[in-house]
Amino acid sequence: MNPTPASSAYNPFRHWIDEQAPNAAAACALYDATLLALKAIPDDADTISAAEPILRAFINGLDDLDGEEFLMDTIRREEAGDVFDDLARQVGIPSEISDEWFDEWRDF
């Protein structure tokens, strides 16, 4: 039985649930919320300015998950970076900006 909710069927963190990683469901929910917030950015908005606080909240949420029970090891850090990059690209953030944000904002 797969505990992943139907809304997370295409969630890039869904395999963390399969690995029974603590806080995996929270990571999936964080991704879903971030994706919805990014999709809600109006077409006429300054995308970089509108997306920055949303993407920063995503990184802060991942930072909050990192701890004794849930270790953001090298593999998960790389996966989180790939997910962050994908989210940023979906709204047209250039990779040089998203790479800088990821490195600057994260504590994990």
Rank of each mutant, 00 (worst) to 15 (best):
L65G: 00
A29Q: 14
A24R: 02
F108I: 00
D43W: 08
S95M: 04
A50S: 15
P12D: 01
N23R: 15
S49T: 09
A37E: 12
A80P: 01
L36V: 08
L62M: 15
E96M: 07
E69A: 05
P3C: 04
A21P: 00
E68K: 08
Q20T: 15
F58K: 12
R76P: 00
P22L: 05
Y31F: 14
D82I: 00
R77K: 13
A37F: 04
I75Q: 10
A37D: 13
D66F: 03
E78N: 12
S95L: 04
H15A: 14
D85G: 12
K39S: 13
A33Q: 13
R56A: 13
L71W: 06
L65K: 02
T4V: 15
A37L: 05
L35C: 09
A24Q: 07
A88K: 01
D43L: 13
I59E: 06
T4R: 05
L87C: 02
W105C: 08
Y10M: 02
Q20A: 10
D46C: 08
A24C: 03
L35P: 05
M1I: 14
L38V: 06
D107A: 06
P12R: 00
A26T: 12
D18Q: 12
E79T: 10
T47M: 12
E104C: 04
F70S: 11
L62N: 02
D99Q: 06
E100L: 11
T47Q: 13
W105S: 02
F84D: 00
Q20C: 10
F108D: 11
T74M: 08
D64T: 07
D18C: 03
T47F: 09
I54L: 03
D73E: 09
I75W: 00
L87R: 03
W105M: 12
I17F: 00
I54K: 01
A57T: 14
D46M: 07
N60L: 01
A27F: 01
G61R: 12
A51H: 06
A51S: 14
E52F: 03
A80F: 00
A45V: 01
I59M: 15
D99H: 03
A27L: 12
D43I: 09
G61L: 05
L35H: 08
I59A: 10
F70Q: 11
I97A: 01
A21V: 15
I97P: 02
W105T: 06
P22H: 06
E69F: 10
E79N: 03
P53A: 07
L87H: 02
L71M: 06
R89G: 14
E69P: 09
R89I: 06
S98T: 14
E100V: 11
D46N: 13
A37G: 05
D18V: 06
